[in-house]
Design a protein around this nucleic acid. Sequence first.
DNA 1: ACAGAATTGATACCAAATATCATATGTACA
DNA 2: TGTACATATGATATTTGGTATCAATTCTGT
Lengths: 155, 155
Amino acid sequence: MVAQAQRHSGHEHPRPRSAAVVDDIVGQLSDRGYRDTEPRRLVISAVAAQGRPFTAEELCASLPCVGRATVYRGLRLLVETDQVCRVLLEDRELRYQLSHQGHHHHLLCAVCGASADLEGCDVEDMLREAATAAGFRMSGHWLEVYGRCGECAEG
Amino acid sequence: MVAQAQRHSGHEHPRPRSAAVVDDIVGQLSDRGYRDTEPRRLVISAVAAQGRPFTAEELCASLPCVGRATVYRGLRLLVETDQVCRVLLEDRELRYQLSHQGHHHHLLCAVCGASADLEGCDVEDMLREAATAAGFRMSGHWLEVYGRCGECAEG
DNA sequence: ACAGAATTGATACCAAATATCATATGTACA
DNA sequence: TGTACATATGATATTTGGTATCAATTCTGT
Ligand SMILES: [Mn+2]
Ligand SMILES: [Mn+2]
Ligand SMILES: [Zn+2]
Ligand SMILES: [Zn+2]
């Protein structure tokens, strides 16, 4: 059974102790040898403040005091360390959001941009089997699911 | 059961009667009101000549006598009319290949770039169910499967 | 043929992202 | 507590992939 997990929508309440989230992520990075810098904290803080999937450019716009290159680098680092996951919209626009760890996929609302995680990827076995049947050895997959969230489906 | 379909690899023999493929596609386009033009035929012919997923830029390079805009427009038209399908690599590079009709997904070899179609998308029901459980109404999905083809898996 | 719509392609333009590289800053350690 | 030096930053230039313009050309139906 695929279970619904964290919802990311503009309607939810502000994340409790956003500073704690930042400290946690900075800590994880420190453990891996990455420095604790002011611009980095600003990027992480801005990421944590987003209510729904955001673009790199949106993040840049919300961080006028941080260089563009630094924002992009920070985002890449966060993705590489699994702190942030990438979300691909139907029009191929790339967005990001805080990761809730582990391999999972996204339900994306085409109307309001909200997303929900589909944790526990049950398609995995089916895909591996199909890949084997085709003579392939599967190493991974990418899946995004598009539709309308409950609110946007009404009307 | 997900079945293996057409293989697209550099190792296969040249497609028989490539001209027939072009005529067929031009015919389909004509039926929909699109004109039979020389540049269009050149684009279709080049598409049909590819042995594996190709980028728009690669196609442009192989068609120095056709304008870039025309190549892009031709490719877009072929995608819109389901003659060609889009393939997304792990690094987000967008490629194209002749479509074997209907909704399906791709098995992509990370080593040699070969692809195989997974026809009959059995994940559909599972995803719709999961989406419903999360309060979404699913309208579509995008799935790519990565790995190694039989040849590249050896060694 | 002809008219008129569709198509083309040179060019300009745009957005997203990366490469450069001189400067600034964090961290380990003497 | 200072210092050395690797790491990180950010202004800027560049690259990549793709779209908008628009005058000229080419199809297609009559
Ligand atoms: Mn996610
Ligand atoms: Mn395909
Ligand atoms: Zn919505
Ligand atoms: Zn291969």
